[in-house]
Nucleic acid binder design. Structure first.
Lengths: 196, 196
DNA sequence: TGTTTATTGTACTAATCGGTATAGTATGCA
DNA sequence: TGCATACTATACCGATTAGTACAATAAACA
């Protein structure tokens, strides 16, 4: 009963994701959002709560729709391949021509005033989940004999994620997909086991 | 003639640098600045023009006072040593215990609304200057026989800077100096020439 | 000592921020 | 055909944004 909603919340969420991805959390105003989504302020608040809740839902959508490659990448037969797929998949997300360049998680976290400290912590926590997944994959590889026993999976996961973060910053500054794939090539030369 | 200024502009600029470094450009308000600097708004505008001009002057100060190590690092005898000094010096700046963690150039550039596009471009341009300096150092190394002739200095400079940017993001999220030095250790293993 | 000049503090501007009260409108159910 | 209900539109809230007008103040020069 009652009047029907005149917009598709899922479609609106996709638009919000695009806006947040381009402008970051603080850089995006409610007016930016409502204008892009084609809805009014009360509609936005009725459907999504408030700005912070909306951002968390865009984060969920982002991970589900754009970062989903990571889970598959980690299942590659060798650790080396898993890491390379991870980095190359990330590059493709960062430079997806249908979305603003860069990473929602990185663009959103930087330059937060203290009023939005909670957002920053949320993003750091989500980032850490990914890094831990990678570390666990490397630990498995080590017990499989696929990764040297005297190498530290924690150090390696931290390094790989750092390269990814650096590429995210570059992407936001307009780096091309080719440029970033070249970064991956150089980065992968650290790998302690040669592909035979 | 006229009344004397009651604050030291140079000291005030150092404080502004600290505030901008912690909050980024957009995340910092004039009130944040005047409060930290201990001066009033008209004094700030009289001495520094406006927010954007003040930020540019803090950028100059930052490069002069905190990034000055880069110039010396590039003069190391070997290219490998130059790059390692560059990365390690940057880690120490990022985690300087007397300053907010992270890099003014990175924290300031992310999450800019379109009103401050000029700031973003300025920071990207300054970053490119550093990357070009590194590339030129690698080109010199190549003609010195200190760097393989079949390696591309542009690719390497881009990779090294990317690692630095990634560490800057991590530092802003609270990474420790030790953590980041470990990233450098792994990153340096890409190096195409072994230290004999 | 009086005048000029630059800095100071107070108080303000228009615009924008995130968020909402309220009234109007469209729908499903009885 | 009412009536209850959920959404929409307008217009607003107090707080904060970057930036400034203006008058009081303090120093240098005549």
């Amino acid at each position: 009963m009652g009047r029907h909603r005149e917009f598709d919340p899922d479609e609106a969420l996709h638009i919000a994701l695009q806006v947040f991805r381009r402008r970051g959390y603080e850089g995006t105003s409610i007016s930016d959002l409502t204008e892009a989504m084609g809805i009014t302020r009360p509609s936005l608040y009725a459907a999504f709560g408030n700005k912070e809740e909306l951002f968390r839902r865009t984060l969920d959508l982002y991970e589900r729709r754009h970062l989903c490659f990571a889970h598959e990448a980690l299942q590659a037969p060798t650790a080396r391949e898993a890491v390379e797929r991870l980095l190359r998949g990330y590059v493709d997300v960062l430079t997806d021509p249908t979305s603003p360049p860069g990473c929602l998680g990185v663009n959103g976290a930087m330059a937060c005033s203290e009023a939005n400290e909670a957002i920053r912590e949320e993003l750091v926590a989500r980032r850490m989940v990914n890094e831990n997944n990678l570390r666990e994959r490397l630990e498995k590889a080590r017990s499989d004999g696929d990764f040297p026993g005297d190498e530290d999976p924690t150090d390696w996961a931290r390094y790989i994620v750092s390269v990814g973060l650096g590429m995210a910053v570059r992407a936001a500054s307009g780096a091309s997909r080719e440029e970033l794939h070249r970064v991956v090539v150089v980065a992968m030369r650290t790998w302690p086991i040669r592909t035979s």
